[in-house]
Simulated scan of single mutants.
Amino acid sequence: MKAIKQELAEALREEELFWRQKCREEWLRAGDRNTKYFTIV
C-alpha cells in the first residue's frame, strides 16, 4: 500500500510539473501583454 501511495504521489508531481511547463511555454510564446506599456518612452 505504501508503494502505491508513493507511485501516486510521484505521478501527481510529474503531472503538476508538466502543466507548469506547458503554461510557461504558452506564456513565453504569447509574450507579456504589459510589455508595451513599459517600453513606450
Rank of each mutant, 00 (worst) to 15 (best):
E7A: 05
E15Q: 08
K22Q: 07
K22R: 13
L8W: 06
K22L: 05
R13F: 00
L17G: 04
V41P: 14
L17T: 05
L12Q: 15
E10C: 06
W19E: 02
K2R: 15
E25T: 14
T35V: 06
G31M: 02
E15L: 10
C23L: 14
E16F: 02
E26T: 08
W27T: 07
W19L: 01
Y37K: 14
A30S: 07
R29H: 00
E15K: 11
F38Q: 05
N34S: 13
E25I: 09
C23E: 15
I40P: 00
I40Q: 12
T39Y: 10
M1Q: 11
K2A: 15
G31L: 03
E7Y: 02
R33A: 06
W27Y: 12
L8C: 07
R24S: 13
K22S: 00
K2W: 09
R20A: 04
R13C: 06
C23V: 00
Q21W: 05
R20I: 00
K2V: 09
R29Q: 04
I40L: 09
V41T: 15
Q6C: 06
R20M: 04
A9T: 04
T35I: 01
K5D: 13
W27D: 10
I40E: 11
L12K: 15
R29K: 05
G31D: 00
K2T: 12
E14Q: 12
V41D: 14
R33G: 03
T35A: 13
R13I: 04
L17S: 08
A30D: 04
E10R: 12
E26W: 14
E14I: 09
R13T: 08
T39D: 10
R13G: 10
L17A: 13
M1G: 12
W19S: 01
R33K: 10
Y37A: 11
T39G: 05
L12G: 10
W27V: 06
F18K: 07
E15A: 13
W19R: 03
R33N: 05
L12Y: 14
M1Y: 12
E10Q: 13
N34Y: 07
V41N: 15
A30W: 02
Y37T: 15
I4A: 15
K36C: 08
T39C: 09
F38P: 03
A30E: 05
E25F: 12
D32F: 02
R20D: 02
T39F: 08
W19D: 01
L8P: 01
R20F: 01
L28K: 11
I4T: 12
E10F: 08
E26F: 09
Q6V: 06
E26Q: 14
K36Q: 09
Y37P: 00
V41M: 10
K36N: 11
Q6D: 13
F18L: 07
R20G: 01
F18R: 08
A9I: 03
R29W: 02
K22P: 03
R33E: 09
A30L: 10
F18H: 04
F18C: 00
L28W: 07
E15P: 02
L8Y: 06
K36A: 10
E25D: 13
D32P: 01
